[in-house]
Design a protein around this nucleic acid. Structure first.
Lengths: 152, 152
DNA sequence: CCGTATCCAGAATGATACTG
DNA sequence: CAGTATCATTCTGGATACGG
């Protein structure tokens, strides 16, 4: 983290600074982006469009389990943010082609960083989950979760 | 994107391949991570804990607008995934310290990539949104959104 | 072919009160 | 101090039907 984007600038280094409210205003742009892209379909669409342009029903067939509604909504959102370009060919019947904008393409690289992390450490997360599952299933029958689990 | 994580391997290069369902099984791990970290508070907490360990109420005061419930849930989730370590000091009254695990710290770097992107291109997104707002407010009074907006 | 309009279920978040 | 419990609200995603 390069230290320029946090919504709580002073807090991060000072011991007990004044609380900085994080409201609708002045929020961390990183959180913004993560929430824009952290929904159920955006990434999949972005990655696909990173390969080549797609027509609407092509995407629909490709992802398959996505509902028409959500595909439309996802594409609209990405278009609104200038990440995806929508081009209508007035043929008959009409066809619509979606592609990444230059801005959208710049997102592929940082996305790749998190992608690699996910691939590399995904198993670690699964292991951590499994470990806690074992904890709560076996000994110390869920001690109401407060004490009991010391540092150990 | 390093090409190893997509849930639709064949589709990306073939013109009209067989649809690959993306269900609860066999999903893209990147989407997984993005959704784990794309919630309202996780990133903020991770970034803070990246600086130094925090006690519960310290985080609560720091973020301020977060509800006690959500702070607890966020920390629980991160702990479950092995990203955050929770250490209870049986003082009186008890104090609990949260810190990043080694695994959690490895997440800071890729997160930083997206952070930098957000800081750099956030304005572009705002501009894109503003541009579309102008479109729909001024001329061509929202032509039911299908044709009319050709390539132009 | 490419959508929009409705309606609905479930999850995420928040407000508030209470507890070891 | 560090939570848990409960309830209300909002957001997200999906099913279905219809329209240009």
């Amino acid at each position: 983290m390069s230290d320029r984007h946090t919504a709580v600038p002073s807090m991060v280094s000072a011991p007990l600074p004044d609380p900085v409210p994080v409201g609708e205003y002045e929020r961390c742009p990183v959180t913004d982006i993560l929430r824009r892209v952290g929904d159920k379909w955006s990434i999949l669409v972005i990655v696909l469009l990173g390969k080549r342009p797609y027509r609407f029903n092509e995407l629909h067939r490709g992802i398959e389990v996505i509902s028409q509604r959500m595909l439309t909504r996802t594409l609209r959102g990405l278009e609104t943010d200038g990440l995806v370009h929508r081009e209508v060919f007035p043929t008959k019947p009409p066809s619509v082609e979606y592609s990444l904008t230059p801005l959208g393409r710049t997102l592929l690289a940082p996305l790749s960083g998190l992608a690699d992390w996910a691939v590399e450490h995904g198993p670690d997360i699964m292991a951590a989950r499994a470990a806690l599952d074992l904890d709560s299933s076996g000994e110390t029958p869920s001690p109401a979760r407060g004490i009991v689990r010391e540092s150990a």
